[in-house]
Design a protein around this nucleic acid. Structure first.
Length: 557
DNA sequence: GCGATCAGCT
DNA sequence: CACAGCTGATCGC
């Protein structure tokens, strides 16, 4: 879950993935993808009012994110305020002050106008998900949003390069969800997909009455699973609703609201009860009354990390239940690879992994920064940021200063100097001995690993005291996690409290335990450079069929 | 009545 | 085991 406050020190007049509190005062909004934890405040009346008195205020996102967002009636009011930006198309944005200050009783007193260049990069997290690369007076900064990029894929992101080299990136705001040695390695998208495909194939081919229920949490990100399964077996996947995909034919063709299909990803509040009673969440039964044979497959990442050191990507947990390894966040190794390639001056963690402190995460990230990340908290209050700029900014992009002319969003027509994809070996290695890399790759074996999900204490040797077991217990003292950025709720001061804004909340002593005590959590891996050919769906982006922009209705909930 | 927050539960 | 939500209770406005 993102705990990013919404703003970056380098470009404090932009708000990204947070739209509450002080973020209401931003000059421009950015949404990296449509997951709720990145949309806080996005439908609040306060923001709605702010929009209505503004001529220039826009929300910038990818075309697919725009489409998904506007499918929900709750966000329809954004319709005239969204500027979709094509992925991998550098776009100039002019930030101007307008009368908004009057409405809110305060004024921005920094830059009158400021232009920035923003480029959306595919993030591989869910449909429409992007990273934002900002270039301007504040230097070159990358906000990753949530992302999953396989090792080596970073080199293929053209706009991270300039003149054949990686751009000089001062700060990366990073998805650190799995920035923890416990997630040292997660099987690749392709491996996980193959495992699921084999399991599904082995079942649905037994008879027309053998059906599969994919127990996917209600969120975007599983679509490539649906499309690949449908493609492979010629069976559409049943979903509760599809209107969000109405302009995405390459998804739409593979999903259906017709319950008479063998692959389901439908939801129901009592789905667990249903499935245990051998019924699908949608209530479907075979046309002729023959009982269905249902297996459930639950995509899961942490479950695997907790229990299994080296196992298959599919684990059978009971008679008809399976866990399938699945992740739409980069693993620890993939994060390392990403940062090693980019080599930013500093890194800021957007996510606090469970049970970790900021200090621990920063300690992990430190070897990948040119500057020690730990003292990154030297964020300046806005007054001081007014004229602040990094020393020599980026190299190849000469015209970042000379920007103060245009008030419209225009694609920056610049020569597309396509850098040759840097060979993977060209990566600059950080102090990598801290994190012993590599291990002999194992092979993916198609057999399923069997284990009991609840109690039963047999199975393989538990090298670590895995006390996860029963699913009902636990939880309990969860509490926590509610990170309200040290402030009372509500509107309170609309005057920006800049000083506290960027401060990290707590500090406590901690000890580093980042020794790679868990060598590799899973079978196989792409050691050096994998053979993955991400030309296929790995980027998770989705083409929207042209126009039909008139949203039309259809949002009858 | 609505929104924000939290507990509980996947 | 938690990747990202939902529901329902409570509280304040």
């Amino acid at each position: 879950m993102s705990s990013f406050g919404g703003r970056m020190a380098e470009y404090p007049s932009l708000s990204i993935d947070r739209f509450d509190r002080d973020n209401l005062l931003a000059k421009a909004f950015f949404l990296s993808h449509c997951h709720k934890d990145h949309m806080k405040g996005l439908k609040a009346p306060a923001l709605q009012r702010r929009l209505e008195c503004s001529l220039k205020l826009k929300l910038y996102c990818s075309p697919v994110t725009k489409e998904i967002l506007l499918t929900s009636s709750k966000y329809k009011f954004w319709e005239n305020y969204i500027a979709a930006i094509e992925v991998e198309t550098p776009t100039q944005i002019s930030l101007v002050d307008e009368a908004a200050g009057k409405t809110y009783g305060c004024y921005f007193d920094f830059e009158q106008k400021e232009d920035i260049l923003v480029t959306l990069l595919p993030a591989g997290h869910c449909p429409g998900s992007v990273m934002f690369l900002f270039e301007g007076m504040g230097g070159t900064v990358l906000y990753t949003g949530d992302f999953r990029l396989a090792s080596g894929e970073t080199a293929r992101l053209e706009w991270l390069h300039s003149g054949g080299r990686v751009k000089d990136i001062s700060t990366v705001y990073l998805d650190t969800t799995f920035c923890d040695p416990r997630f040292y390695q997660i099987p690749s998208r392709e491996e996980c997909l193959n495992g699921i495909m084999q399991l599904v194939g082995s079942w649905v081919t037994l008879s027309p009455y053998h059906v599969v229920w994919l127990n996917c949490k209600a969120a975007y990100g599983y679509e490539y699973l649906f499309t690949n399964l449908s493609e492979e077996f010629g069976i559409q996947v049943h979903l509760n609703k599809l209107d969000m995909f109405k302009n995405m034919p390459e998804i739409l063709h593979h999903v259906t609201t017709d319950r008479m299909t063998q692959i389901h990803a439908c939801r129901h509040p009592k789905e667990d009860y249903f499935v245990r009673a051998n019924r699908l969440p949608c209530g479907n039964i075979a046309a002729d009354g023959t009982p269905l044979h249902i297996i459930s497959i639950k995509p899961s990442t942490m479950w695997f990390a907790e229990r299994i050191k080296r196992a298959n990507v599919i684990v059978r947990t009971s008679e008809s239940c399976y866990r399938a390894c699945f992740s739409f966040h980069s693993s620890f190794t993939e994060i390392k690879d990403f940062l090693s390639y980019i080599r930013p001056v500093t890194v800021h963690a957007n996510v606090l992994p469970m049970g970790k402190t900021y200090e621990e995460v920063n300690e992990i990230l430190k070897p990948f920064c040119r500057k020690d990340c730990a003292d990154e908290a030297t964020y300046k209050p806005l007054g001081k940021l007014k004229r602040w700029r990094r020393s020599s900014s980026n190299e190849g992009d000469g015209d970042v200063d000379g920007l103060f002319d245009d008030y419209h969003v225009i694609p920056a027509k610049r020569a597309l100097c396509v850098p040759p994809p840097a060979p993977p070996t060209a990566r600059c290695e950080p102090d990598d001995e801290v994190l012993a890399d590599s291990e002999p790759p194992a092979c993916f074996t198609p057999e399923f690993f069997e284990c009991e999900e609840s109690n039963e204490e047999d199975e393989e040797e538990e090298t670590d005291g895995a006390d996860v077991e029963d699913e009902t217990s636990a939880t309990r003292a969860s509490g926590g996690t509610g990170q309200q950025d040290g402030g009372t709720a509500g509107e309170e001061t609309l005057a920006p409290s800049w000083h506290s804004f960027f401060q990290r909340e707590r500090e406590e002593d901690w000890e580093q335990e980042m020794a790679p005590h868990s060598p590799k959590l899973f079978s196989d891996s792409e050691d050096g450079d994998s053979t993955h050919d991400p030309s296929q769906s790995s980027s998770q982006s989705t083409h929207i069929s042209e126009r039909a922009s008139q949203g039309s209705g259809l949002e009858t909930e």
